[in-house]
Simulated assay, not measured.
Amino acid sequence: MPTPTLPSSIIPSHLQDPLVIGDVIIHSRVLQSPLSGVTDRAFRELVRRYAPESMLYTEMVQASGLCHARELEKIMDIGPEEQPISIQLFDCRPDFMAEAARMAVAEGAKTIDINMGCPVNKITKKGGGSSLLRQPEVAEAIVHAVVEAVAVPVTVKTRIGWDDDDINAVEFGRRMEAAGAKMLTLHGRTRRQGYHGPARWDWIARVKAALSIPVIANGDIVSVESALRCLEQTGADGVMCSRGTLGYPFLVGEIDRFLKTGLPSPPPTPLERLRCAQEHLHLLWQYKGQKGIHQARKHMTWYVKGFEGAAPLRDQLCQIKTLEEGDRLLNQAIQTLETTALRCDSDCFNSNC
């Protein structure tokens, strides 16, 4: 990621204060988004290293699945070192959501986040995710039921509307606040947009102006610069990083550091990214065994970029079947980069540059 060129003086002073969510105080204005198939315990461990005070989120959990099974999925397995952490739930039935929220709090969730923004068909067809934008009365009932069920703050993550003909973010946000939500995270795209086209931060600004609870901006937060632009344009109380963290668990910490100190973080070198990728691979094996190796394939390809030989290495890593195979490929690439770095240092010394 490029080094910020914007002066730290543009950072509003309130962004250096803690984020207050109901009675929970978070000493960071930068949050790691819940991402299905990504923000498991292995990934969160890496993000936490670089952002020790930020709020982390689990992958979203279907409430009815938990309540029927009466046993917690691995997805809700969180460690004490991960705090503060929120567990995100989705469903369209208030009673199931209330019961699942109680189970999540028992697991250690500091807040309960309700997903009302996922655009994926298999979620919306079940009445969850962004389909609730078209059912505001049901959304209100869900928030109210969860608020009544647990003592921790309840938050909502949603989008600006279903499509361009049905953008209802301001009214929907007001309903969520009235139902008892203590924070709203707003992705600046419609459900129809999915993840395409620019995030419309102007709608986040309108919602922020209309609500008294914290509003967190989400969408197109891929660097320190983009986070600063978004905060300036929206007046939001913080930002949530999503796809910008794929293969880059450093991002939340980079933005957090800049907001607190005005100092940029030096971007990780390709060598540092490869070492992080290797650690990620080992964590996935540690927590998930062979399933973790299969999931590691996509993560490895996200990490590997920005150096000579990255493309063929990605092709090989996306086919690994064992931990040993992934280790061998990464070790070879790491040794090549280390040798190149030593040669460059030697050439620089010999030329007195």
Rank of each mutant, 00 (worst) to 15 (best):
L228K: 07
M116P: 04
W201I: 04
K125M: 13
M1E: 09
L228S: 08
A227H: 03
E45K: 10
E279L: 05
Q62L: 07
P7C: 06
G247V: 00
L132C: 15
D113H: 04
V252H: 07
K291I: 00
F90R: 09
E137C: 06
L330Y: 12
K291A: 08
I255F: 03
A209S: 14
N121H: 15
H187S: 14
L133G: 15
A277S: 05
D17A: 15
R102K: 14
G128R: 14
P264F: 01
N331D: 15
R314E: 07
S33N: 11
K305V: 00
E53C: 02
A333E: 12
E325C: 04
R29D: 07
L317N: 05
Y57N: 12
Y195K: 05
G161R: 06
M183I: 05
E73S: 09
A311I: 02
V38E: 02
V105C: 11
Q135P: 03
A69V: 05
K288C: 01
F172P: 01
I21C: 08
C348D: 12
V156G: 06
R206I: 00
A100Q: 09
G247K: 02
G37R: 07
T269V: 00
H14W: 13
Q286P: 00
K298C: 02
M116D: 05
S13H: 14
E225R: 06
G326T: 07
I85K: 01
R297I: 06
S86T: 08
T261V: 01
P136W: 08
W203T: 04
A141F: 00
I142N: 11
Q286M: 01
L19E: 10
G79E: 10
P84V: 02
D163W: 06
A341V: 01
P52E: 06
N168G: 01
D166M: 04
D164H: 09
E279H: 12
S36E: 14
D95K: 08
L271W: 04
P4Q: 05
L337E: 14
P80E: 06
A139M: 06
P34G: 08
I221K: 03
S130Q: 15
G173C: 09
I26G: 13
M103A: 11
S130F: 14
I25T: 15
Q16E: 14
V156Q: 10
M176Y: 10
R257H: 08
T234K: 08
C353K: 14
M176R: 11
G253P: 00
